[in-house]
Design a protein around this nucleic acid. Sequence first.
DNA 1: TCATTACAAGTGTGATCACAAATCAAAAAT
DNA 2: ATTTTTGATTTGTGATCACACTTGTAATGA
Lengths: 245, 245
Amino acid sequence: MQKTAVVKSNDPIAAQLAPVGRETVQDRVYLELRRALIGGLFEPSQVLTIRGLADALMTSTMPVREALGRLITEKALEALPNRSVRVPPITLERMDDLLRARILIEGEAIALAATRMASRQVSVIESMLSEWDEMRALKLKKDVDREVTLNQSFHFEIYRACGSAVLIPMIESLWLQSGPCIRVAIYAFSEAGEVDTAHFHRSIVAALSAQDATAAREALIADISRPFNFLRNKLQSEAASKGMS
Amino acid sequence: MQKTAVVKSNDPIAAQLAPVGRETVQDRVYLELRRALIGGLFEPSQVLTIRGLADALMTSTMPVREALGRLITEKALEALPNRSVRVPPITLERMDDLLRARILIEGEAIALAATRMASRQVSVIESMLSEWDEMRALKLKKDVDREVTLNQSFHFEIYRACGSAVLIPMIESLWLQSGPCIRVAIYAFSEAGEVDTAHFHRSIVAALSAQDATAAREALIADISRPFNFLRNKLQSEAASKGMS
DNA sequence: TCATTACAAGTGTGATCACAAATCAAAAAT
DNA sequence: ATTTTTGATTTGTGATCACACTTGTAATGA
């Protein structure tokens, strides 16, 4: 083994070196599309072409098509019979379906996390929350992208503590699928005078630090249900007014 | 639109024609690998090479690598840092993790199905079960592959009735991940004098026909827990005897 | 005899090309 | 004016190739 032979003469340096993870172009494309999807940068029903994305991402078609295939298998994208791919459209049934699954799985994850999380981990979350607050107080205009990103890291910081290598990828898949819906809801929120999301997060953290699994689950359910309920009301009222005209 | 123009002169024929679904080579490869994985044809920790699979499946490397990528994203396969791919090894932690997730999600699915399933659908399941029984009575030697396949169609016939387009793919992913474990357990079963799986299935059907969601969930949990518990005991005793020597 | 090096075979990744199917636009016919 | 047809462009799919990296083995050294 050549590398170890080279390294073993100066171990203390090697100890400080992190492995340089050679991520492939395909991985970068996949992660970028994921980010865009969760952040809601693509609109529901929007069709995506391989060559179009390849041009936008400054790469060839090969990594893009494989990334698209992966996203299709986790239902983040939809393969039309024409063999073109689009981000799935929003329907009321699908929204309710997604919300029920998220309540089920993320609720279980946070209940597990509540029992397993050390107090040090909770305080990390807490500090993340206050940092978030003061950043929000600083800039008056609200940055929707930033909000979405921070909300995501808040939740997944908790989910990681559940210690389940099976549940976490499923939750990621669920966020991927509900990303476009959520984005629409957030836009609607910021129009219609936003209620504070911070309140929900605070009660989640309180339940976690009390190691109260049931309270944590209920607080989480309230948190993730809110945009869905808001969007459902919006869609229903739109459908009703359209039915009237 | 040419096709509709051609068809509209003889509509009654068109009504009887099912769309001929042009499945791609990649899809066939993907489905074949899925089948092999769920059926446990690959052993845990076995490494798979693109060119090897391409030769075995009589196709080029292209469809294989895309299918492998898809299977990796749903955690049915594992990407090693060497960039080679293998079927994930079995560990006690992973088994417990998988079982908990399956109890959670498949339990929810069957509870939903119990409330939504029409009596006609239940009788379809019932007839499927008796057909299975008499087939098993016919041939003395037990066909493990057939058992696995029939067990799969029994369960998914039920899950389809839950009507959730979100839960079902997750369950498929879970079966994909636990396929190799289950196969090992089934082999261990057939060595160690099998208890009858039919009994569990009968109580599931009974609960479904009574529309008793709670009973259905509990019967299902008993059914899917059995191979896991068996395998856990086996692994633990093996580890103990290895620790002794 | 053992460790190290050098070479060869194997493997994954990305780019490019050929082909078939789909989409779109303009032209032609009714 | 509307519909149909025709042709050109775009798109996804599969195959092949070049390159970089890994792995395994034989040759060389101590």
